[in-house]
Design a protein around this nucleic acid. Sequence first.
DNA 1: CTGTTAGCGCCTTCAG
DNA 2: CTGAAGGCGCTAACAG
Lengths: 340, 340
Amino acid sequence: MTVSITDVAKAAGVSASTVSRALRGRPGVSDAVRERISRVASSLGYTASRNAAGLASRRTLTFGVLTPYVGRWFFGQIIDSAERVLSEAGYDLLLYNVGSEEARERFFADLPVRKRVDALLTLVVPTEEEAAALRGLGIPLGLIVGGARPGFVTVGIDDRAGTRLAVRHLLNLGHRRIGLIGTGPTAPMHWTTPIERRLAYLELLAEAGIEYDPEIEADGEFTVEGGERAMTRLLAASRPPTAVFAQSDEMAMGALRALRRHRLRVPRDVSVVGFDDHQLAEVVGLTTVAQPVAAQGAEAAALLLEQLRNPGGEVPEYVGMPVRFVLRDTTGPPRDLDRD
Amino acid sequence: MTVSITDVAKAAGVSASTVSRALRGRPGVSDAVRERISRVASSLGYTASRNAAGLASRRTLTFGVLTPYVGRWFFGQIIDSAERVLSEAGYDLLLYNVGSEEARERFFADLPVRKRVDALLTLVVPTEEEAAALRGLGIPLGLIVGGARPGFVTVGIDDRAGTRLAVRHLLNLGHRRIGLIGTGPTAPMHWTTPIERRLAYLELLAEAGIEYDPEIEADGEFTVEGGERAMTRLLAASRPPTAVFAQSDEMAMGALRALRRHRLRVPRDVSVVGFDDHQLAEVVGLTTVAQPVAAQGAEAAALLLEQLRNPGGEVPEYVGMPVRFVLRDTTGPPRDLDRD
DNA sequence: CTGTTAGCGCCTTCAG
DNA sequence: CTGAAGGCGCTAACAG
């Protein structure tokens, strides 16, 4: 039913090896024969099975991508850009969504990518154990996040620098009560982004001689809804903030929503800064810190491809991408400069 | 280096067949042996190669997903939800982004999924030729879109009904000059969504005795930026609209942005309705038509799985999902009721 | 330049 | 209940 290489070989009156060589453009086939074979192959609608080819050649021409979300903007952008680079290079992409604890365990228990992919790019930051399991795969590994991991080509941004841009901006405007929306204390330790951003926030407050107030820090779960709940909590503080730094644009948008519900004007009553430069940040006029998202996916994919092409070659351990402050409409001076 | 089934067989003192049977839970292995094998396998870190297994069994336990975008909200949601259902069922997901004309041609020329997937779900609406090529794969096929296609299990919504909800709302508010942002005349004919939505818009205008004015229809390319440009064009019309129906929330958000730039207030000066109920629609208070996006992906995946489990079984040709009108803050009565 | 011979790692008969 | 043999579709040596 499905046409195989021997079918083509017979039809073209040659051996299977010749068909294989001809179709893959390898040397050692006369032009005449090669052309005849191509014609026969396409008339029969033949395409080599990548699985079988991979089995024989030990190259699957497939990448694995591990992600905690597909539907969230940041991850979607990265998968999209990585896929473009890979398909351009002739690679397929096997996608694993390990967002739930359950799916994650299942993945690391089975490691279904074993012998199935030539390289793996992960958007979830592996625990030490998980990282070890991945290293055991014996293939090039890539990671996108704010800090390097041994054994992985890592692409990321300087979360601290980005955060400093955001918080410094609020300080320069005269804010002294600056709230933080990030992850709560339950955040997994291996996912460094929120930790780094929080530390930079604390650092800047300290530098400005402002005392940290836990009452104006809340967990926004890195989602719109979580950001909304977090902002609501901040507003209920005994002394609410005049400005808020949200660790992601999605949480910032949730915060904006909460403010609207409370009939508070932005930035007159409260200023808000996000992080990411989400596609819709411009639509809502959100002041934020931009990071090149798609570029990170493309770069990571390209580095892994390079590693596959040139196994002995040197690979950077960490590639940092630039961050950039983007001033829009959600930040302004505090209303009561003398309030604090 | 990488441990194979024979390694496990040797270590456990049995044959490879027995290992295969034991690990896959097939009958015909004594409990004692089965347990010994599992222990040995996991101590060796053995996982069967899905590629090799697929070659032998002719079942790849893999789904192919064809999509025009990954990073856009609608598609990301669908891929996400489909992936959940599939990984739950033990299937892997091979993702193909055929957004560019080039990638699309490459995909249909090679059909790299051939012999590589057990079923295929497509989020791009294939042309007749492409559909034929896919049918030639001889595997269950799924499609997510607003209309059925022969040979595909199709999941979708009633685009006309959804559009009617949106436009009727504007009419009820008293609007008579209602603009349309969708795709231009260059839209590919096989992608029915914009066509259907446009037809429903025209129908309703006709029913209301309003003459269609091409000057207040513009192409928004189904993106935020495109929507912004389209709205700008509508505002430049000799008689600008008092309300706009955007065929997607992303375009509607672009329209909102354009209105803000023009210092027009929403809904006082112009009303805007979108379509989709994007995650951030609530944040910007966008009135829209909601469709169950994730549910469509999950349903399509489930239907294909069912088809794989029960090849002879009956399959619905088309599964329609409900749409629902969501009233928020971007719509109101026209300012000058007597203006038109 | 081309064909033959061996597998790749696994599953599926078919014997026992 | 278990093992041996054969083959899935292809590529990689090795001969000519």
